[in-house]
Simulated scan of single mutants.
Amino acid sequence: MSWLDRVRERLPFGNKRESPDNLWIKCPRCQEMVFRSEYEKNLSVCPNCDHHGRIGADTRLNQILDNNGYELLPPPRVTEDPLRFKDSKRYADRLKAARASNPHPDAFTAAIGTIEGHKAVVGVQDFTFMGGSMGMAVGDAFCNAAQRALDEKCGFICVTAAGGARMQEGILSLMQMPRATVMTRRLKEAGLPYIVVLADPTTGGVTASYAMLGDVQIAEPGALIGFAGQRVIQETIREQLPEGFQRAEYLHKHGMVDMVTHRKDLRATLAQLLDYLSPAKAA
């Protein structure tokens, strides 16, 4: 036995504790390692560079709605894989894989509750479910949530995060754009507030429809917002795009969004807007 082993036997050291693999998280912007507990306590915002991380539907609902509970709206039932689509993988298999790692059956989840006492329906698009892509289930969920807001005579808040329309559903996914647009018009005609929170990323057909039709457009800091990708635009117009193009701050500066709001201030901002835009105030 070596002298080091003998010393170890006498010292009051236990076995090396194994730390869980998810104890740390690496910020995608500043590349710094952050304690996961600290990161989550900070609403999934990096404490070093203020990067707003992507979060799931349940986390978002818990951050926005009051903690006295909320009611999840039932998910719609739609025809799955209507085109029997297959690329490198069958669409049915992609859906199965997405559902295996997600608590909800598709990319759009809605709930009704209160925000600092103001009744509201909140719909959240989850980028972790097939890139938040908009298919028939997302379209139905959006329309159902808007209809619930009409029935309850309360505001509708939509948090968007999507890569666009779901290509595996072809023209059926594109038809969700006018359907959702009609529902936003009905909310407007009823005098009910429709507020959009643009999270990272919001692109494609979602941007071209309900994501840009809010009475108030709120963007999270650094969120990517646009229709086509930057490379496609540059190749089309054959010009170099400016720094920060399609980011929330650039769009705010050029009048495309109304405000850029930090995640810690989002709930209070939404409550203030609901109070100001409520039908009682309008009357």
Rank of each mutant, 00 (worst) to 15 (best):
W3R: 04
N42F: 10
Q240G: 00
V78Q: 12
E220C: 05
G53H: 11
G164I: 01
G131Q: 09
N102K: 03
M212Y: 03
L198N: 07
I218T: 12
M33I: 11
G255S: 06
T184L: 11
M136Y: 03
T207S: 13
D81Y: 06
R8F: 13
S2E: 02
L23Q: 15
Y250H: 12
S133L: 05
P103R: 14
Q31L: 07
A268M: 12
A146D: 05
R166S: 02
D93W: 03
C158Y: 11
G14T: 14
A162Y: 02
V232R: 00
E220L: 12
N48C: 02
F127W: 03
A111E: 06
G123L: 02
D275Y: 07
V124Y: 02
C154K: 02
F108E: 02
S19H: 09
A162F: 02
I233H: 00
L43V: 09
R10N: 08
Y39K: 07
T203P: 00
P82R: 08
A219T: 01
M183N: 06
A146V: 15
V124H: 04
I233V: 14
R238Q: 13
T79G: 00
L273G: 02
G191F: 08
Y250S: 01
P75E: 05
G191T: 09
P12F: 09
A100V: 08
G164N: 06
Q168M: 12
T109S: 03
K41N: 10
S101D: 05
C143H: 06
A268P: 01
V45P: 08
S278I: 15
V257M: 03
G135H: 07
R179P: 02
K26C: 08
A282L: 14
A97H: 06
Q240K: 10
P74V: 07
L187W: 03
A145L: 03
D275A: 15
R231M: 13
P178M: 02
R231P: 01
L172R: 13
C143T: 08
Y39R: 01
K119W: 13
T114G: 13
T109Q: 04
H118Y: 14
E235I: 00
T181F: 00
V34D: 14
Q147K: 14
T203F: 07
G204Q: 06
A223Q: 07
G214Y: 12
